[in-house]
Amino acid sequence: MAEGTENTTLGLLLRVLLKERSMSMRKLSELTDIDTATISRIINGKRKANLQHLERFADCLGVPLMVFFEAAGYPMEQKRSDSTSHTYVNMIQDLVNTNASVQVVEQQLANFELYSQTTEGSSSILQEFEGKLKSVGSVGPLIEQMKHLFDKFRLRKGTPNELALIGGALLYFIVPADAIPDYLFAVGYLDDAIAVQLTTTALDKK
C-alpha cells in the first residue's frame, strides 16, 4: 500500500462507520476517550492511528480489530483460510446497507457471466486481470480470492457453468462498472467483495 494511502483508507472506513451509526466524532471521542481533534486528524489522514486507537475504535464500533489494522496499513498475514476470508467479506458487506445494491450486482454478474463465455470476454479476463490487480495495489482476503478464481479460470478448472460464474466475477472486478459508490477498504471495493461472495456462494452450492 502506498505511503499515505493507509491513512486515507482508515479515514474512509471511519467516515462510513460513523455515518451508518449516525454518530458524531464528538460522540466517538466520548466513547473511546480519544480526543476529538485526534480523531479528526486520523479521519482526515493527517495522523497515523496507533494500536491503542484502533483497539478502541474496534470496541466502540463493533467491528473486528483486523479490519482497522488492515485499513491503517499495519502488516497482516496475506494467506488466510477460505472460511476466514468469507467471514471478512461478510463483515464488509454488513458495514453499510447494501440490499438494493446486491440485486444490482447480481444483475450485472449475470450479464458478465454470459460475456465471459465469449472469446472476447475470455480474452479480456486473461489479458487485463494482472493489470487490474496492480492498479488496486493492495493485499487481503478479497485479493487472494480473486487470484484463486483467476487461476481456476486460466487453467479451466471447473465445469462450463462454474467457469462462467468465475468469469463473471473476474469481469466485474476488471470492468469499471460499480453498482455502488467506491468505499475503498484495505481489500478493495465493497461491491467487488459482494460479487465475489455471491459467486463463491453459488459455486459452493454446485
Rank of each mutant, 00 (worst) to 15 (best):
Q93N: 14
S101E: 09
L61N: 02
Y74N: 00
C60K: 03
Q107T: 11
G131L: 08
K134N: 02
G121S: 00
N111T: 12
T118W: 15
N97I: 10
V104H: 05
Y88R: 06
F112Q: 01
N90L: 07
S116L: 07
A110F: 04
I92W: 07
S122L: 03
R80W: 13
V136A: 02
S81M: 06
T87W: 03
K79R: 12
I92D: 01
F69G: 06
G140Q: 01
Q117C: 08
Q108R: 10
I92S: 02
N111K: 14
T84L: 05
M66D: 08
F68L: 04
S83I: 11
V67N: 02
R80K: 15
V104M: 03
P141W: 08
V67Y: 04
E120N: 07
T87E: 10
S83T: 14
A100L: 14
E120K: 07
L61K: 01
Q108F: 11
E70P: 03
Q78K: 07
V136D: 00
G73V: 05
D94Y: 03
S116Q: 08
V102I: 09
L54C: 04
K79F: 06
V104T: 13
D82T: 09
S122M: 05
C60W: 07
S138K: 06
T84W: 10
P64M: 04
K79M: 06
N111D: 13
N99R: 14
L126F: 09
I125G: 01
E130A: 13
V139T: 01
L114C: 13
S101N: 02
E113C: 03
V139C: 01
A100I: 15
A72V: 11
T98D: 10
V96W: 01
S122H: 11
S85D: 11
V89T: 01
F69W: 15
Q117D: 13
T87I: 06
E128Y: 15
S138W: 04
K132I: 12
L126A: 02
I125S: 00
V102H: 06
L114E: 15
V96G: 00
A58E: 14
Q93S: 08
G62I: 11
R80Q: 11
S101Q: 12
A100S: 10
F112D: 03
F69H: 14
L61T: 02
G73D: 02
L54W: 05
E106M: 10
N99F: 13
S85L: 08
M91F: 03
N97P: 04
R56K: 10
L54G: 00
P141D: 10
G137S: 07
E120R: 06
V105C: 01
S101L: 01
M76Q: 08
F68T: 04
S124K: 14
Q52K: 07
I92R: 00
E77F: 09
L95R: 08
T87R: 05
V67R: 00
D82L: 09
Q117Y: 13
K134I: 07
E70I: 09
S135N: 05
Q107I: 14
T119W: 06
P141R: 04
L61I: 05
L109V: 10
G121Y: 03
A58D: 09
V67P: 03
L65W: 12
L126H: 09
S135F: 06
G62F: 12
A110G: 01
V102Y: 04
S122W: 11
M76I: 12
V96M: 01
Q103I: 12
F68D: 01
N90F: 07
S85Y: 11
S81G: 09
Q107Y: 15
G121R: 00
L133W: 13
